[in-house]
Design a protein around this nucleic acid. Sequence first.
DNA 1: GTCTATAACCGGATAGAC
DNA 2: GTCTATCCGGTTATAGAC
Lengths: 227, 227
Amino acid sequence: MTAAEAPRRPKALETQARIFAAALELFRERGYEAATMRAIAERAGVALGNAYYYFRSKEHLIQAFYSRTHEEHLAAVRPRLDRLRDLKSRLLWVMQTKLETIEPYHRFAGIMFRSAADPTSPLNPFSPESDPVRREATTLFALVVDGARTRIPGDLRAELPNLLWLYHMGIVLFWIHDTSPDRRRTSRLMERSVEVIVKLIGIASLPFMLPVRRAALRLLAALRETD
Amino acid sequence: MTAAEAPRRPKALETQARIFAAALELFRERGYEAATMRAIAERAGVALGNAYYYFRSKEHLIQAFYSRTHEEHLAAVRPRLDRLRDLKSRLLWVMQTKLETIEPYHRFAGIMFRSAADPTSPLNPFSPESDPVRREATTLFALVVDGARTRIPGDLRAELPNLLWLYHMGIVLFWIHDTSPDRRRTSRLMERSVEVIVKLIGIASLPFMLPVRRAALRLLAALRETD
DNA sequence: GTCTATAACCGGATAGAC
DNA sequence: GTCTATCCGGTTATAGAC
């Protein structure tokens, strides 16, 4: 729960948790817009000003939501990941649990992603504020890759966690727009894309692909250069 | 200029144009947030309510902006595209002119893309409202492909305009976040990625790549299915 | 440091008169 | 078509209590 300033006293901690819980409930029940700060404060049994004391803005409430769902995702992933050995089933498992974790919030996820696309917003996945969450999420994909017995050339293997994180963001983006029952379209897309990705990794690992692979990886490196 | 309802009388048309022009100016001068509807109305010399008469919301003002910049882009592309023959130089030219066209609006482009990521917003590139603009933009990339003498298998060729449109959206997304002088990072990324893309098209066109190509294309088809 | 209550500001959006 | 008045919700400010 990354809030404005981490509260020290247990009572404060509880108040903050109550506000956060109220926000989550209202987001679920009414969606983002309708869950006004006034309503959140009321449900949490605090004054409006107090809600702002713990969460600098409505958006900060969402940063907290990010962390929370990531933790939930981790918890859902762990019990089974170790037993899966090949890249494909590991990636499938992680993606599947991801979709299950975020499903309850589908209704307000869209409007949440409004801010996510704004470069000046702390919610932007590339913003400094999002750094910790992004790093953690990438770590999960590193785990997926490392634990797989699939053979992958070193240069690609090093970049793969970032690429998979990006891929996973793409799936989430699709999920946001998916109104099919049980989010079936997203599931199907996810399953098929995982297959294609694993196949592509196989191909990219072939010796004669070295030049293109290098060019593509250099491209990615350039993406991260600061000037 | 796709507004709320197309105004019939010349006077109305002029008023609408004046509001739109004022909006564009203020977007450039102050960015999106600071360009309040009140300020836009004032600069256009109309009442606040009147601005809303022509543009249902601030976001609709941006839909109009989309159309406008696309038209400008087309105008910039045309004089030279015919003379370029291979895919790489054609694509490079189109992307380069794109970046030049949107550059003046860099400052407010970010916040513009807030709404673009919201599935309920008319600004979302996948929304019905955006359909015309997207279709037109895709047509441009179809033109890029069709006029190139590069050999491309039919299945891939049919999908390529959509893929290139998607690619171009990615570059724009990067551009939004790019604060380097003269947007140099974006230019570099664009040039390198065009090279990689053309190389990849070459590889994907090899006979033994047929199965993976098919799988990937089927994936894209699934993306568009309505169920 | 934690919290309340209340009033006010600001800008997007709407209603209804002219 | 155009205006004025008003609503609504995010956000801020303030002043004070525990």
